[in-house]
Design a protein around this nucleic acid. Structure first.
Lengths: 142, 142
DNA sequence: CATAAACTCTATAAAAAGGATAGACTTTTT
DNA sequence: AAAAAGTCTATCCTTTTTATAGAGTTTATG
């Protein structure tokens, strides 16, 4: 299950993409529209900014905005950023690998084998689907 | 990511299946072999017993044993039992569904749509692969 | 039938994660 | 200069996860 943080991030990114034509968007607008605690959302948007996905403008008329086109933002990237590993086991994670401490040899572990297949099936979707693919409205510009 | 509980459960079940010919297996034997805290493992095996997957025998010469053939135990069942939902979002879970509180209409939510696909791809593997498929040794009997 | 072996059950506690809040600070516009 | 708005750090509370302790119950067996 994805953490609340990642779930909120997706909803916020969707809102930002669907209103990209309106310039910087207020955190408070997103929070209200998507029913998310404003302060918690603040932290999340900040993380997305530090990761180079969002930009922000301070002062009056400020807010957050996408730095990239939605089609350039794979869903897997957002999950890894906020949640870490996508795989079900540390020993089959591509980006957050950890050695298995409960089995003798990962190379012949049947569990490792099956979970690798799950990982591949999941990544095939999450690495190819982007923010653009989950937008509700048609955003012709991006 | 699967919880430690589920990870340990898989390793314990593998051990039980691979030594099914030896009668009841001691908790302590599994704990030592798989490098798991004995008391924590105790709780896990008890849950598996209460779910009808394992049987136990008390007293001297006692221990735990499988109640079903490994090929009758889908991996998805174990995960759902100990971890709950397999899906990445509550709103796409088949067994632990919860309404989405951040979007207006799940029926037209792009996130819901993609995550349903991830769920289906994952379940296609986890519901068809069984304990038998992750055994390291050949257990001809079962 | 006493004893030791082994699972059962309940309670507790430590650690980590998740979720939320507060408030001072900085930047920008007007 | 003042107001608007985002930035940043620190803290706090709750829940979940992981782990441990110990008393209780059952059973084999000598």
């Amino acid at each position: 299950m994805l953490s609340k943080k990642t779930q909120y991030a997706f909803h916020a990114l969707i809102h930002l993409a669907e209103h990209a034509d309106k310039g910087p968007i207020l955190i408070s607008e997103i929070a209200q529209e998507k029913n998310i605690s404003i302060k918690f959302l603040e932290n999340i948007l900040l993380e997305l900014k530090n990761a180079g996905i969002l930009g922000s403008k301070k002062g009056k008329g400020g807010g957050y905005y996408l730095l990239k086109a939605p089609k350039e933002i794979p869903l897997a990237k957002i999950i890894r950023l906020l949640d870490g590993a996508i795989a079900l086991l540390p020993c089959v994670s591509l980006n957050y690998y950890e050695r298995c401490e409960n089995c003798r040899d990962e190379a012949v572990c049947g569990l490792n084998d099956v979970m690798s297949k799950v990982r591949d099936a999941t990544l095939k979707i999450l690495e190819n689907k982007t923010l653009k693919d989950i937008l509700t409205r048609n955003v012709s510009i991006l």
